[in-house]
Write a protein that binds this DNA or RNA. Structure first.
Ligand SMILES: [Mn+2]
Ligand SMILES: [Mn+2]
Ligand SMILES: [Mn+2]
Ligand SMILES: [Mn+2]
Lengths: 220, 220
DNA sequence: AAAATTTTTTAGATTTACCTAAAAATAAAA
DNA sequence: TTTTATTTTTAGGTAAATCTAAAAAATTTT
C-alpha cells in the first residue's frame, strides 16, 4: 500500500513517461511543486519498494508494479471526475483539484461500484480514457487541431491542457467535447485558425489550437 | 484549515463530549487508537489553534470554533454514508471506514452539491441526524429498546453501535430502520427481549436491545 | 578539450505525528 | 491520612516528507 504522497509521485512519473522514457528529477519536481532534492529522496524510496527503476543521474522509469499502481490512480482520478460532472453538475474546469484528493481514497469496493454507478464510462470529462479494473484501456487516436489543414474536419474529443483558464475559454467559445469542426482558414500573420463550428465562424489562437485534440478527421 | 489528523481528533472529542463535559486524554487515545502521550501533544496544538479549551490534567472541551469544525466533519461523514448506501448500494455495515476517509476531502462546493444530489437527507443510514450547512440539526428523541416495557411499541430509528458485526446481526434479524416493533415479553432469566416485528416473534439479547433506538413509542 | 551551465545528489535541518520510559498530578482505597 | 493505583504530562527519540546550501556529475557551449 502506498502513501498519498507516493501515489502522487507515481502518477506524475507515469504521465511524464508518456513523453520521455527516462523521467528526470527536475521534471518531477516541477509537476509535484517541490524541490529536486525532495524528489531524489522520494525516488530512492520508490526504488527501494521496486516501484521504479532508478540509475543515479539518469532519472527513473516505472516498473510493471509501479505502472500498475499509477494506472490505478489514474483510473480513480478519471472516474471521480466523471462523477463530479455527470452527477454533481461540476463544470469540466472545476473537477481537477477535487479529483486530485478523491483519487487517494482506498477501497477497491468503492471504485468498482462507482464505475458501475456511472455506467462504466470509457472516457473522462476531458476526453481522456478510463482504464478498466485490470488497468486496460485503448489510447485513442488523436491529432492536434493545429496540425489540420484548410478544409479538414473532425470531432473535438480531447484536450491536452487541463488548466481551468484554458477549459473555461473553450467553453465560452463553444469548443466542447463531441462538437464537429472544420478548418476554414489559417491566418498567415499569427498562425491563428479560423474554424467552422455549428454554422458559426470563430477564430482561435495557435496556442489554443495546439491543445485541442481531434478525431475522425477527414482530409479534404 | 485543519489537517486530516486534527479533524479526526476534533470529531472524536465532539462525540465523547456527548457523554461527559470534560473529555479525558485516555478516552481520546482509545478512540484514536494511539497513546495518551500523543494525545497530550495534539491537544496542546488544538488549544494553540483555539479549537479546544484545555486545562492541564483536566481534559478538554471544544470551543465554538472547534465544535463548528467537528460538526462540519460529522456532516461530511454522514452525507458520504448516505451516498454510499443510496447510490452505490453499500450495506449499512460497510460504509463506516470509507466515510472515515471521504469526510476529509476539502471542498465546500463538493459537499453542498453532494447534499443536493442526495436530496438533502436528514439522517444517515444509521439514523443519525445530518447537520445542515450551517451546522444545525435536531437531536431526535430516542429511547433505548431495552427501556421499553411489555406491550410498548415503536419504530426503529437508530442504533448506538456502529460495528459491522452488530449491524450485520440486526440486518439478519430484519431489525432495520423504519420497522415497527412491539415488546411481547421480557425473559426473567437472561433479560432477553421477545419482540413482535412484521407478524413474526423474535428474541434478542439484552446486549442487542441496549443498542437499538426507538422513537414514536406508544406506552401500553 | 576546457570552461560554463544545468541537472542531480548529498548533508544537515525542520515539521508533523507518532512512540517509550519516567516523572508528576490526581483519584481511589486502605 | 497515608498508601496505592490511575491518569496525565514531560523528556527525549523516530519516521515521513519537506527544505536550503553546497558538492558532484552530466551536458552544453566556447
Ligand atoms: Mn493527488
Ligand atoms: Mn481529466
Ligand atoms: Mn476520519
Ligand atoms: Mn453513520
Amino acid at each position: 500500500m502506498q502513501s498519498f504522497t507516493e501515489e502522487n509521485y507515481l502518477k506524475v512519473i507515469y504521465h511524464l513517461a508518456e513523453k520521455t522514457n527516462n523521467v528526470q528529477t527536475n521534471a518531477i519536481a516541477e509537476q509535484i511543486q517541490t524541490k529536486p532534492a525532495s524528489v531524489t529522496d522520494m525516488i530512492k524510496k520508490l526504488a527501494e519498494k521496486e516501484l521504479v527503476d532508478y540509475i543515479k543521474y539518469q532519472g527513473v522509469t516505472l516498473t510493471d508494479k509501479g505502472r500498475h499502481a499509477a494506472v490505478d490512480i489514474v483510473r480513480k482520478h478519471r472516474l471521480w471526475e466523471v462523477f463530479l460532472v455527470d452527477k454533481l453538475n461540476f463544470k469540466w474546469d472545476e473537477v481537477h483539484d477535487v479529483a486530485e484528493e478523491l483519487e487517494h481514497i482506498k477501497s477497491v469496493n468503492l471504485i468498482e461500484r462507482l464505475d458501475e454507478f456511472l455506467g462504466f464510462p470509457k472516457s473522462d470529462p476531458h476526453g481522456d480514457p478510463i482504464p478498466d479494473k485490470n488497468g486496460r484501456f485503448t489510447k485513442t487516436q488523436f491529432i492536434k487541431l493545429i496540425e489540420l489543414k484548410i478544409g479538414d474536419s473532425g470531432t473535438i474529443t480531447g484536450v491536452s491542457q487541463h488548466s481551468s483558464a484554458f477549459l473555461k475559454h473553450l467553453e465560452k467559445l463553444g469548443l466542447t467535447l463531441g462538437k464537429q469542426i472544420k478548418i476554414s482558414d489559417v491566418t498567415d500573420f499569427d498562425g491563428s485558425v479560423e474554424i467552422l463550428i455549428e454554422e458559426k465562424q470563430i477564430n482561435i489562437s495557435r496556442e489554443v489550437a495546439k491543445h485541442i485534440l481531434i478525431s475522425n478527421n477527414g482530409k479534404n
